[in-house]
Amino acid sequence: MTQALRRNFVIHTLALSACAVAVLALPRPASAADNPDAAMHIIVGYAPGGAADSLARIYAEQLRQDGHGTVIVENKPGASARLALDYVKRAKPDGKTIFIGPSPLFTIFPLTYKKLGYDADKDLVPAAVLTDVPTVIAAGVQQPYKNMKEYVEWAKRNPNSASLGLATIGSAGHLGTVALGKAAGIAITPAAYRGASPMLVDVISGTVSIGWDAVASMMPLYKGGKLQFLGVSGTRRAKALPDVPTLKEQGFSQYDYATSWYGAFLPAGTQPDVVAKVEKMFIVASRNAATAGKLEALGLEVAAKPGQDARHRIQLERAAWKPIVEATGFVAED
């Protein structure tokens, strides 16, 4: 090799080496593994101020305190929380986007919606059962009826004014009330809202005659003397409301299964180790004494159960609701 060729070879080799170093130095697309400190987003399908929103913010605060970095709560109301669920199912399955929502989205909606927009068994992965959710029927304190029996009698005398405010069409409270109406021979018109807060404004004013939601949404207004509770759902009294009778005690068995629960869910495709990490994260947060106290003050009952428990509950409760849905003939169209 001549001296000129040798010099050109060395220059060419150095140039290639420099290019290789430059390529290696180029930034790569970020991933959850590359950036474990990326913000966590908790997605809620209702407007601020309701039970789901309050619960999500309590957990976000505890997760930050537990060292899980930045945790942001995002409200995406609409379509009875299905818009938020759709958003999460399309999110990257890296454990950083978490849906917190009520069980009827997975237990009742598959039975009532012709076009659900998601597969309740495949599109999301249950990570944890967070809380059990006692629900209640409430009315403004100025209303003449003080319990559900009195309301039914009032509705018979005022058929054009009987209405039920709720945040979710096709929810347990809605179906229970449809079934009650059929049994009592009255029509109670459902009025859907984008969250508990705007619905409760109308319940207090009397724009709607009664409202149904989680005790958590209504407790501050109940304690503040703005609402009266006509009865709680389920087969036992709520821990936070030992003096309020169940609807079953008043002769209305249509609400036996209307006590739901909130869960944390991840997009399908999330790796099992990531699901396990999120599951542990939420269970630890649930068992924190301060967090549990805040949840119980809202009327929520801490569950702190793993994702497997959520899967079991979904199948069990869907089977229980199926004959009730069939008996009412209700079909959700929106």
Rank of each mutant, 00 (worst) to 15 (best):
Ala120Glu: 13
Lys122Trp: 06
Lys122Cys: 05
Lys122Val: 13
Asp123Asn: 15
Asp123Lys: 14
Val125Ser: 08
Pro126Arg: 13
Ala127Trp: 04
Ala128Ser: 12
Val129Lys: 15
Leu130Tyr: 02
Leu130Glu: 03
Thr131Arg: 00
Thr131Ser: 11
Asp132Pro: 01
Asp132Cys: 02
Asp132Ile: 09
Val133His: 04
Val133Met: 13
Val133Cys: 13
Pro134Val: 14
Thr135Glu: 15
Thr135Ala: 14
Val136Met: 02
Val136Pro: 00
Ile137Glu: 04
Ala139Ser: 07
Ala139Glu: 03
Val141Glu: 10
Val141Gln: 10
Gln143Ala: 15
Gln143Ser: 13
Pro144Val: 03
Tyr145Arg: 03
Lys146Gln: 13
Lys146Glu: 03
Asn147Arg: 06
Glu150His: 04
Glu150Arg: 01
Glu150Tyr: 00
Tyr151Ala: 02
Trp154Cys: 04
Trp154Glu: 09
Ala155Asp: 01
Ala155Lys: 06
Ala155His: 01
Lys156Trp: 09
Arg157Asp: 14
Arg157Lys: 15
Pro159Ile: 13
Asn160Gly: 12
Asn160Val: 04
Ser161Arg: 15
Ser161Ile: 00
Ser161Gly: 06
Ser161Asn: 12
Ala162Pro: 10
Ala162Gly: 06
Gly165Thr: 08
Gly165Phe: 07
Leu166Asn: 07
Leu166Pro: 04
Ala167Glu: 13
Ala167Leu: 05
Thr168Lys: 10
Thr168Trp: 09
Thr168Pro: 00
Ile169Thr: 04
Ile169Val: 05
Ile169Ala: 11
Gly170Leu: 10
Ala172His: 10
His174Met: 07
Leu175Lys: 09
Gly176His: 11
Gly176Glu: 11
Gly176Ala: 09
Thr177Lys: 02
Val178Lys: 08
Ala179Phe: 07
Ala179Gly: 05
Leu180Arg: 00
Leu180His: 02
Gly181His: 01
Lys182Leu: 09
Lys182Asp: 03
Lys182Arg: 12
Lys182Ala: 11
Ala184Glu: 15
Ala184Asn: 08
Ala184Val: 07
Ala184Tyr: 08
Ile188His: 13
Pro190Trp: 08
Ala191Gln: 01
Ala192Ile: 05
Ala192Thr: 13
Tyr193Pro: 04
Arg194Ser: 14
Arg194Gly: 12
Gly195Leu: 08
Gly195Ile: 06
Ser197Gln: 14
Met199Pro: 01
Leu200Asp: 07
Leu200Tyr: 09
Asp202Leu: 01
Val203Leu: 09
Gly206Gln: 01
Gly206Asn: 01
Thr207Cys: 05
Ser209Gln: 04
Ser209Gly: 07
Ile210Leu: 02
Gly211Asp: 03
Gly211Gln: 03
Gly211Met: 10
Trp212Cys: 09
Trp212Thr: 11
Asp213Phe: 00
Asp213Glu: 00
Asp213Pro: 00
Ala214Ser: 15
Ala216Pro: 12
Met218Ser: 13
Met219Phe: 08
Met219Arg: 11
Pro220Ser: 06
Pro220Lys: 06
Tyr222Asp: 11
Tyr222Cys: 09
Tyr222Ser: 05
Lys223His: 03
Lys223Ile: 02
Gly224Cys: 08
Gly225Leu: 04
Gly225Lys: 05
Gly225Ile: 07
Lys226Thr: 06
Gln228Arg: 14
Gln228Leu: 07
Phe229Ser: 03
Gly231Val: 06
Val232Gly: 03
Ser233Pro: 00
Thr235Tyr: 02
Thr235Glu: 11
Arg236Tyr: 05
Arg237Ile: 00
Arg237Cys: 00
